[in-house]
Write a protein that binds this DNA or RNA. Sequence first.
RNA 1: GCCGAUGUAGCUCAGAUGGUAGAGCGCGUCCUUGGUAAGGACGAGGUCACCGGUUCAAUCCCGGUCAUCGGCUCCA
Length: 644
Amino acid sequence: MSSITVTLPDGSQQSHPAGISPLAIARSISPRLADDAVVAQVNGELRDLTRPLTENTELRILTSKDPQSLEVYRHSTAHLLAAAVLELFPETKLGIGPPIENGFYYDFDRPEPFTPEDLERIEKKMWEIQARDLPYERVWTKKDEGLSKYKDAWMKCELIQERAGDEFSEYTLGPQFIDFCRGPHVPSTKRIKAFKLLSVAGAYWKGDEKRKQLQRIYGTAWFSQKDLDGYLKMLEEAKKRDHRKLGQELELYMIDELAGPGLIFFLPKGATVRRVLEDWMRDAYVERGYDLVFTPHVARLDLWKTSGHANFYGENMFKPMELDDAEYQLKPMNCPGHILIYRSKPRSYRDLPVRLGELGTVYRYERSGTMHGLLRVRGFTQDDAHIFCTPEQIENEVVSCLEFARDVLHTFGFDKYEAELSTWDGGVSGKYDGAPELWALAEKSLRQATERLGWNARIMPDEAAFYGPKIDVKLVDAIGRKWQLSTVQFDFTLPRRFGLEFTGDDNRKHQPLMVHRALFGSVERFFGILTEHYAGAFPVWLAPVQATLLPISDRHAPFARQVLQELKAAGLRATIDERSEKVNMKIREAQLAKVPFMLVVGDKEVESGSVSVRNRRHGDQGAQPVSQFIAGAMKLITERTPFE
RNA sequence: GCCGAUGUAGCUCAGAUGGUAGAGCGCGUCCUUGGUAAGGACGAGGUCACCGGUUCAAUCCCGGUCAUCGGCUCCA
């Protein structure tokens, strides 16, 4: 028998008989490693631990510590799910079952819907199969043979036709189950220790809404029960922070059926937060050299024909309305309005850059079933600005936009964020608009801008908008979820469509470059993200009520009212709770309302002219003079401390 | 728009084989004046999402509509 040389990650080399499995090698290194092993990396490629090695190889044994092995593990759990479904519902046809972030899913075609009870049964069945300790066995099959074997499984046939070579691999799980699959998988079902089925949902075959709708079962899987519990706990925490729940509990906003879905009413408390946010943002615009404008909410449809939106964005717009003898359109975007302002007078290169900003409310038609609290609505306000400048100015402009975005993120205590640079395909498909020189210039300035900031932007090839490349900033919130936020986008199309120009120092007409940028994205959406990020406990500078006075008994009310006036005079948003309730009750309610400061006032305080401060996070802080409390609170407000 | 689930008091939820409903919290009145997360009593409050159908009778069964939730598609 011939032998092969196996090189391990530490550089050491071993000689083994050809045909030995990585699992056997792992066992020879240490039984513990063999137990922990999930998958092998053979010459850089992930492979089953049990698949024999036939040539000299560089071998790495991946354990639960390697992130790639979790994907394999989840993929294997998806197979376990499919096997369980087929045992319980043999008539079911299998679609695909990949690993996803935090778990896996599998798509099934079956006339009857899966019920929550079915899910429980399936999960039980999965544990049953798990206990059988079935190996995931790789089988090598010829294409034509395979096609006849799968003739009843239409989706698998389609996949084999598309993806398989002359021969392809399949994985079995016990005598019945076999699945067209590239693998690799964990060695056996015993390896799968912690999973849970979460939900069933409709999903189109291949994500195409014209194709058949399947039933997708979602699950989560982890190497240990502890990890699974941790994840389930995170889901619970996310549920507690859900802005729709907090929005109602804290009276921030509402949606009323009578008005329609996706249309937001800000209640007084939410409106206060929003007002502070917007005022802050508008001031920041002015400080950074933007000119603020206002544009109308409706305009002749002709404007939208000129911009091209009526044509390529029409699906997403509210229907035009008849008025006099013209059609008018509710605006889905702010750009055309800003463009009209730009071209309302001749511009010289000396005027550039022109930065026009607006908190502009737009209305877009979202299909029913897509609305989601504040995150996906039909009417929303963009903190929108358009920058018109020369090619020489563009890089600095992009840098200032990104700096602005970064400062915004820091203000709200988002310390982790990532940038994505979406580029075009080089023009091969013809689906992008604009000259290659423009694309080159724009992509270069975007890239250099991120480099100047020391950002490590991920390049997303072929992800640009058709009208220009862009940078998207994604933030990571307090419990680790990612949200798309700021965006800086080039637009080569609109300046041309509207014939924008400026006079250069050569006394000739030139077309300005146009950048579209939004930092919050949508104020409503950002408000929702903030609500979840802070779990409803807005920082003092944003809190709808910053301090509430809690007189212990009626005789303390006059002093409390006097303090209230002092707080208000200092500019604090303060209230008083004069009900004849016990102070425990008043504290409980203020605490649940997440008021940052509860100021208890009793005999001692009246006598000494002080307040006893209770902080919503840190509890009783003891008595302090009113002036001292005001100074402390004002400091938090002017510094916009994100977490007091 | 599509698949599935849900819709009962301001909120969170019970409820009956079909005979027009109940709790807790909240709200109102009164009592209580209490020092860091729920003091007590009484009371008001519902066309059981909406529109049809079946039935002697529908909140319950059937059909449709609307909305919400979990997803898909799309997206700020």
